[in-house]
Amino acid sequence: MTMPLSAPAVAPVVAARTRVRIGYLLVLAAILAAAVVPFLAPPYVVQNYTRVLIVALPTVGLNLLTGYGGVISLGQSVFFGLGAYVTAILVADHGWAWWQTLPLAVALPLAAGVLIGIPSLRIRGVYFAIVTLVLAAWFPNVIQRFNETTGGNQGKSLTVMQAPGWLGLAQDQYGYLVSLCFLLLVLLLLRNLARGRTGRALTAMRDNEVAAATQGVDVARTKIYVSGLSAAAAGLGGCLYAATQGIVSSETAYFTVVGAIEFLAAMVIGGAGTVLGPIVGALVTERLPVLLSDVDPQLAVAAYGVLLIVVVRVMPAGLVGFATTLARRLTARVTQHHTTVNARNEGKP
């Protein structure tokens, strides 16, 4: 049979290995850089970066469901809000420590994600997107409706997480580092998931649902599970939000449709279906408006919109996807250069 490919098999393998090693080094460097931020930046900047880490959590979850699985959800704000209110209510009214609320703040959104998924993900098409959008629009009203428990639009205050004395950390530094640890943990779990059987099944479903089903992928069940996981990540983000910001209300943008759209935008800008995309996306959507509004608030909104359009038009795989392609081309060229140089040097004494 004709083999249309003439490229030598060795060069790509070398390039792939170099790429993996460079990739690990970059990630390590990024983690180190992220870890020193709270010791270098002033507290209000640290707090802003804490929100970047927290916004990344629902985005990471959404990326699994939408980026990998192709299921569009507009309801991450609801699960984020659920997690936030579980923590706020238990800490403020029932005297729990914030970390004691963690299991519940994750489990409740997880259950909600599964329950909403069961009827709406069995049906194909945009049904789930519509159901989650309706929930996202409705959620602030629910907070209002139960204002005796939730504080409604007046908000509910809670004591923020405090660093244990022996650590010698300020409150903003501690909140940042705790959020960073949880984000890294979630990233690690989801990356593991993405590179195995489930990750393949999700991508397969997104690419061709019928073909995925004929390979044995239970499409409805997979979507329902992943909807739960995605909601759980958002719930964790909500818990950390409440525990670091100290106030939640029905006016909090992250609990409204605005939040749901921000999470979606962060995923698209960073790179849907890439492991690190959500982090980069959260960095852009949280930091860029702050940086630009120092210059001109109008400019911030405009630049944000322009950026979104440019990314969607020019970089379908987002900033991370774009950078990966670029890096791949570069390493391919470098290794190719090396192999030619080596080949030329062979045979010389």
């Binding site: 779990l189 593991n192 998931l193 195995g196 489930t198 390979q215 044995g216």
Partner: peptide, 13 residues
């Protein structure tokens, strides 16, 4: 796909 035994939790961990 159907021949693998790994499920969500073992995969994540």
């Amino acid at each position: 796909h159907t021949r693998l035994h790994a499920r969500l939790l073992p995969e994540m961990l």
